[in-house]
Design a protein around this nucleic acid. Structure first.
Lengths: 205, 205
DNA sequence: TACTAATATGAATAAAACTTCATATTTCAA
DNA sequence: TTGAAATATGAAGTTTTATTCATATTAGTA
């Protein structure tokens, strides 16, 4: 098994090359995906020599993992930022959903990168979503206790459902190249209706 | 652009080779994914010569597309089968969700194959989900008219949400190697609670 | 300024993968 | 039975990709 380490540059010149590689990697992984992008593609796009690539990265996988980490952090940061001043869970879910969708709308690579991990290394993929679910459960629990969330529903399943909604309603937006923030607000609002009262009509009480 | 056609065998001997290739393809795509599987891997697993592969398939992509089509059909068939005798939408959603999850639990390749299309050819992926959503809307519409489904919610968003739930609750099950049919029933039941009444507690009326 | 560490280069090597083709064998319908 | 169509083979050619390394240049500091 080859290593997947990176070596950060120590001078300005090095930083410039490093950034060029990162940028080319983002563009190409985003367009063609990890497996269809060769190191040759990356270095010719970045306009650096082959050897330069290997100064900073052990392999293509090392670059991928670096970018994956960056995007995971960004996604988490965007969600935290959006929800930090809110106190009730409904508003938090709404703001978190919008933040996620806006993020992937602006930069669909984030999406692809995480999903593609299933094919780069299934363990990475599984770990990401199981961790995410665990964290979600942990954040939902207090609201069960406070009474805002119903206490007769399995939080693990709820977590996966909420992830599923984010991802697929996100897809809905990403598929429409012309979607605006208004469109995002609309689908978020519709999603919240479902989280609020379900999709089925209640018999009149 | 190379063609992606297949040539079906015309004799029993040909059928045998064809099937061996299909089987090897399923196994290897399922284990390592499309891009990490080479034609050499496939032919050596199938125990046929390189030339034999090209008698039936123009390329690796042609084989992938053939399998993708097969799985899409299977998934649709499983869902139709499960819902065919049901009349109310609640029961249909429940049965469809269970059928989908049971299907991917038994054969996770179906999952991977469809998702991987995002990286094999994003257009295929997009087309699959937009078609699926369109079909979903079409099937939901009558139940809005009959009054079973609320009429104040966007059906396209609902469709994407329902696809998201299937896929991610499916993941939840696939992640647990030891999951049984009982576990599937459980998560399906929890999901239906959410579709029924949402996750938030209602103020007492 | 001088020197060391950092960085850059790209040709060359090695490994992996795709595809073709000339030849051989088998099938099956006439 | 016979012959055309179908099928099988795998070595060889081609292309693509990853990686190394000897050499050259540059940056930054003592």
């Amino acid at each position: 098994m080859n290593k997947q380490e990176i070596r950060l540059p120590k001078t300005k010149v090095g930083q410039k090359s490093f950034k060029k590689i990162i940028k080319a990697g983002k563009t190409l992984f985003g367009k063609a995906g990890y497996n269809s992008t060769s190191i040759n593609d990356i270095i010719s796009k970045a306009k650096v020599a082959a050897g330069t690539f290997y100064i900073y990265f052990d392999s293509k996988l090392a670059l991928y993992l670096y970018l994956l980490d960056e995007y995971r952090l960004n996604i988490r940061r965007a969600a935290n930022e959006a929800t930090k001043n809110l106190i009730n869970r409904y508003e938090m879910e709404k703001a978190g959903l919008k933040a996620f969708i806006m993020y992937v709308k602006e930069d669909p690579l984030a999406y692809k990168l995480v999903w593609e991990s299933l094919f780069v290394d299934p363990e990475i993929f599984k770990e990401y979503y199981t961790n995410f679910a665990a964290s979600y459960i942990h954040h939902l629990q207090p609201f069960v206790e406070s009474g805002e969330i119903r206490d007769d529903i399995d939080l693990e399943t709820v977590s996966y459902i909420l992830m599923g909604i984010s991802n697929f309603v996100g897809l809905q937006i990403v598929f429409k190249e012309t979607a605006t923030e208004k469109d995002v607000d609309y689908v978020v609002c519709e999603s919240m209706k479902l989280l609020n009262e379900g999709i089925f009509k209640k018999p009149k009480t």
